[in-house]
Design a protein around this nucleic acid. Structure first.
Length: 581
DNA sequence: GCCGTTTTCGGCCCGACTGTTTTCAGTCG
């Protein structure tokens, strides 16, 4: 049983207990355990067997026993009981913004609401506004939230999609007859969210592979099946499509299945102009999988994607760029553009520690940064106003910076930069005075409050931060949380223009639920002469490893290493920040 | 629920905002 499944079980348990009105601290303990399990680097099952699981913070006797139960039987009695007791739809109701456990329970008791659909109907019939404690605004807010949820339904974040893709690909790889298997589609292109996972395999005979996937233990049902293609619904609720190509057609099948549709269309048009044809792989009763790039006389049929690009007179286009946004022209030149890569990143300028709401110590974070091959890392814990995140008081901040200076004396070939993630306050201004900010290496300024302000007010707050001479970076500039919270109202074009004027750096936050700036604005910023930084905003060790998600955004924005400041070596970075070495 | 060389029991989670109300419950970061 996978860590993720065990983690999910505890999260669901916590949600259901919350609905029941169970003790807050008990629920929080289950949530903590769920997070701890998700953050483990080894399989829970092994740790359980070896007896090392009991040492994990947040996992005590009771939760350990439940994990044991899950591993042994695949089920958890307590969770099953709760699932029998409450309809599954109540969790969706409870997840609506503005609806918590109390209101979900209240709606259930008063109106018999057990699902989003029922809630929507009740709201439309104006039954919600009649309830005590709720009014017209709440009712309308509910309808708006349901709309939002509907629009994103079925879309999942990239890390889950990648995990599913990896697991299914590994499974297919081991099926006898499989020559190769690769992840395609939006996952391979590193899109922000995806609604399916696509795989392409090479084999002489597709049959055994299709059968294997149809019978895979995490497959709930077969949605479609053709001669060389199968689409299944998985345990995670995400469809997975597998296409099997004959060995000669693998490259072109992978190319088409990776997409995007527009990129493929442009490739076909280019091929046509060059006098040959990129054929669709045909699928369906009575047709064999056929793919062809009619060979140039004497040349072999290209079997690899890269060779197909070359045959078309292009440098191979990295999957992240295949969106039909002009990348064919970009890769038609004399030499291919040098885009940002993960190995260019020399440090992380937005990292939290256990001084505020991070899970690990400064030294642990530093150690991990070193292991990643970084040369520097900025510790940027929250500022005093953000009490929920245990924001640092002035005294604690100065104490932390003293500690960092001491630690630096022992560090060789590595530099811990002092910093803060300073709150941009609700009424404008920053959470620490200028003279304090002046003494730090890195000042990340971020919005964490007043999300519902109008565009003028919010833009004003951010512009004010940009105009502060001691601010270096604007953190997660739009505040969006993918699938959870829309970006706040912000005139980003004005923000970008101001950042360019004041020489401020805008962040590409790598956290897969943020990806903020997104690729569109990252590119606009670069084109306006703004420098960017790819940071993780890591709150624990594992999340330091999320940098590839931010790098993917940068690549999809066509950024080169020189557009991104944390590709600089330390002396150059310090010079840019206006700090002495 | 978990945790603890000050504790095996009593902490752990706080303050602002919102929409609903005439004093506050519920939600959220």
């Amino acid at each position: 049983m996978q860590n993720m499944e065990i983690s999910w079980a505890f999260r669901e348990l916590a949600d259901l207990l919350e609905f029941e009105g169970e003790d807050f601290f008990k629920i929080r303990a289950y949530r903590r355990a769920a997070r701890a399990i998700a953050g483990l680097e080894e399989p829970v099952e092994e740790m359980y067997r070896r007896g090392t699981l009991a040492g994990v913070p947040g996992i005590g006797k009771n939760i350990l026993a439940k994990i044991g139960e899950l591993i042994a039987t695949g089920e958890m009695k307590k969770l099953q009981e709760l699932r029998r007791k409450w309809p599954p739809g109540i969790l969706e109701v409870m997840a609506l913004p503005g609806i918590g456990p109390k209101r979900a329970r209240f709606l259930h008791e008063q109106l018999g609401i057990t699902s989003l659909a029922e809630l929507e109907e009740a709201a439309r019939e104006k039954k919600v506004r009649a309830l005590r404690g709720m009014g017209v605004k709440t009712e309308q807010e509910i309808l708006r939230s349901i709309e939002l949820v509907r629009s994103r339904r079925g879309r999942i974040l990239l890390p889950l999609a990648r995990e599913i893709a990896g697991e299914v690909a590994t499974f297919i790889q081991d099926v006898p007859g499989t020559r190769k298997v690769a992840v395609a589609g939006g996952v391979r292109r590193w899109r922000e969210t995806v609604d399916e996972v696509r795989l392409v395999a090479a084999a002489e005979d597709p049959e055994p592979l299709l059968n294997a996937l149809a019978g895979y233990r995490r497959v709930r049902e077969v949605l479609e099946r053709g001669e060389n293609r199968i689409r299944v619904l998985t345990w995670w609720g995400v469809p997975v499509e597998l296409e099997v190509a004959g060995p000669g057609a693998y490259g072109i099948t992978l190319l088409r299945a990776t997409g995007s549709a527009e990129h493929w269309r442009q490739l076909q048009a280019l091929a046509a102009r060059r006098g040959f044809c990129l054929d669709e792989v045909r699928d369906g009763p009575g047709s064999e999988g056929v793919a062809s790039v009619p060979p140039v006389p004497g040349a072999p049929l290209p079997q690899e994607e890269e060779d197909i690009y070359r045959r078309l007179g292009l440098w191979p286009v990295p999957p992240e760029l295949r969106e039909g946004r002009g990348e064919l022209e970009l890769f038609a030149g004399e030499s291919p553009p040098r885009l940002l890569e993960v190995r260019d990143i020399k440090g992380d300028l937005h990292v939290h520690s256990d001084w505020s709401d991070g899970a690990n110590s400064i030294l642990q974070m530093v150690q991990r940064a070193r292991e990643r091959g970084y040369r520097y890392v900025a510790i940027t814990d929250h500022s005093r106003s953000l009490t929920v995140a245990r924001g640092l008081s002035l005294e604690r901040l100065q104490e932390q910076h003293r500690l960092i200076r001491e630690l630096n004396e022992k560090e060789k070939d590595f530099r811990i930069l002092t910093g803060t993630e300073v709150d941009i306050l609700v009424r404008g201004g920053l959470d620490f005075p200028d003279e304090v900010l002046a003494g730090m290496d890195v000042v990340v300024a971020s919005v964490h409050s007043g999300f519902r302000q109008d565009e003028e007010t919010m833009t004003g707050r951010v512009l004010q931060a940009i105009e502060n001479e001691y601010v270096t970076i604007i953190g997660h500039p739009t505040g969006r949380l993918l699938g959870e919270r829309e970006a706040y109202a912000l005139d980003l074009e004005r923000v970008i223009e101001a950042a360019a004027r004041h020489g401020k750096i805008l962040e590409i936050n790598s956290s897969p639920d943020r990806l903020d700036l997104n690729e569109h604005y990252a590119r606009l910023a670069r084109d306006c002469g703004v420098r960017l930084v790819v940071n993780t905003d890591a709150h624990d060790l594992r999340r330091l490893d999320e940098i590839p998600y931010g790098v993917a955004v940068a690549r999809r924005a066509w950024l080169r290493p020189e557009d991104v400041v944390n590709t600089l070596d330390l002396p150059d970075l310090l010079e840019l920040l206006g700090k002495k070495t």
